[in-house]
């Protein structure tokens, strides 16, 4: 064996992904495609919320959906059946998140020339997806009432990277010790710029506000 030496690197492990994410964001802007990265814990109602929102906006913008999961295609099938919106399933190969490279591979399977909005439903998880920039134009997350109002304190990074926090399952609020004002205060502590919209994907409450937020952002894009 030859000579042993030390090579100094001093480089963040996330640096390459952040570079990939920034170049993807720039490309999408040039193509006038808005990419929304939707995150939450499993069972918070991401897919149900998506179906509701897609049915409200699909006649106003050309939209496509990318579903990211570790395995299975239940979500992509469900979206297609319930809304008729083009939907593809991405598998992360055991990984708990999507990164910019995986997002780009997904986008390569969509016709971006005829798309204004792509919604990426990230893997259900409040930790890892927040660590990896996907290259999305905006990040949104869903926190549902049964999960509790203390989540911004427990998963600070997730709340600090999101432009929008949807509080879902408002219809069951009377049955839980969920304090909306407390929750909003905790979110503000993490991210003073985050907008909070209470919704119920089941009853449809608040979804027009979410649709308007999204349409406003797309028109600015």
């Amino acid at each position: 064996m030859g000579e042993v030496k030390i090579i100094e690197i001093k480089k963040s492990v996330f640096a390459d992904n952040e570079k990939d994410a920034d170049s993807l964001r720039t490309e999408l802007k040039e193509k006038k495609v808005f990419l929304l990265n939707l995150m939450s814990s499993p069972g918070s109602g991401k897919t149900t919320t998506l179906i509701q929102i897609l049915n409200r906006i699909k006649n106003k913008v050309r939209v496509a959906v990318m579903e990211a999961d570790i395995d299975g295609d239940v979500d992509a099938v469900k979206i297609k059946e319930a809304t008729g919106v083009p939907s593809i399933q991405l598998h992360t190969g055991g990984m708990c998140h999507l990164d910019a490279e995986m997002t780009r591979q997904g986008l390569d399977n969509l016709n971006l020339e005829e798309t204004d909005l792509v919604i990426l439903e990230n893997v259900g998880n409040l930790v890892c997806p927040a660590e990896f920039d996907t290259g999305a134009t905006c990040n949104a997350m869903i926190l549902s009432v049964p999960e509790g109002d203390d989540k911004p304190l427990k998963y600070p990074l997730m709340f600090s990277v999101c432009d929008l926090v949807l509080i879902n399952k408002m219809d069951v609020l009377p049955y839980f010790d969920f304090n909306m004002e407390r929750c909003k205060r905790f979110i503000q502590m993490r991210n003073a710029n985050a907008q909070v919209i209470p919704i119920s994907a089941k009853t449809g409450d608040g979804l027009d506000a979410f649709a308007n937020w999204l349409l406003d952002r797309i028109s600015e894009c």
Binding site: V4, E8, K11, V13, M189
Partner: peptide, 21 residues
Amino acid sequence: SENTWLLRGNEVEIKELVVSS
């Protein structure tokens, strides 16, 4: 005060490699 920010402790960095050629 809560007007505070993280100075260090968020690193996930490759510092160096020990190699032979």
